[in-house]
Simulated scan of single mutants.
Amino acid sequence: MAAATIDVPRWTGPLPTRDQVAKMIDHSLLRPELTPADVAAGLAVALEHRTASVCVRPADVAAAAAALRGSDVAVGTVVGFPHGGGTTATKVFETGDLVSSGAQEIDMVIDIGRLRGGDVAFTQDEIAAVVHAAQGRPVKVIFENCYLTDQEKVAGYQAAEAAGAAFVKTSTGFAGGGATAADIALMRRTVSRAVQVKAAGGVRTLDALLALHHLGATRFGATTTASILADLERRLAGEGGNRWTP
Rank of each mutant, 00 (worst) to 15 (best):
V99M: 08
S171Y: 00
V21D: 02
A237I: 10
L212S: 01
A230P: 03
R243H: 11
K198Y: 03
R193L: 15
R243P: 02
P36C: 12
A128I: 12
K169R: 09
R116K: 15
G80T: 11
L115S: 04
A65H: 01
A237H: 13
A208L: 10
N242G: 04
Q158G: 02
I127V: 12
V195L: 04
F167N: 11
G202Q: 07
T5L: 08
V92E: 07
A2P: 12
D107T: 01
F167V: 12
L236W: 06
L229I: 04
L68G: 07
D97H: 15
A37E: 13
G177M: 11
A89D: 12
G70W: 02
H213S: 08
A41S: 15
R57E: 12
D97N: 15
F93C: 04
S171I: 07
D97I: 00
G113T: 03
T170C: 03
A22R: 09
Q158H: 11
G177I: 14
V99T: 09
T149R: 07
Q104A: 08
A163P: 06
R243N: 04
P36N: 13
D38K: 12
T77E: 10
G178N: 06
D207L: 06
R243S: 05
G156L: 11
A182P: 06
V73P: 07
K23A: 02
P82A: 05
A208W: 09
L115T: 06
G201K: 02
G238D: 12
P9Q: 07
L43N: 09
F93T: 09
A129C: 06
R69V: 05
A63K: 02
F174H: 06
R235W: 01
L232F: 00
V197N: 01
A66C: 05
G70Y: 04
A46K: 01
N145A: 07
F93E: 04
V99A: 02
V99Y: 02
D26P: 01
F174V: 13
G241K: 10
A230V: 03
T12P: 03
H27L: 04
M108W: 09
A2S: 13
A200S: 14
G113M: 08
A59P: 04
K169H: 10
Y147K: 06
K23Y: 15
G85P: 11
T218I: 14
A155Q: 09
P58I: 06
V92W: 03
L210T: 08
L30V: 14
A200F: 00
G86T: 15
T190H: 00
A63H: 02
Q124Y: 10
G136Y: 05
T87P: 03
A182T: 12
D119W: 04
A217S: 05
V131A: 07
T123E: 00
G84T: 11
A46R: 02
R69D: 15
G156E: 11
N242Y: 00
L34P: 05
D231A: 11
C146K: 07
H132A: 14
D107H: 02
R219E: 01
Q20D: 10
T149Y: 15
D97S: 14
F122C: 15
A163N: 04
A155T: 05
H213W: 11
G221C: 07
A121L: 14
L43R: 10
A162I: 09
G238C: 10
T5S: 08
M108V: 10
G240Q: 13
P16Y: 08
M108H: 06
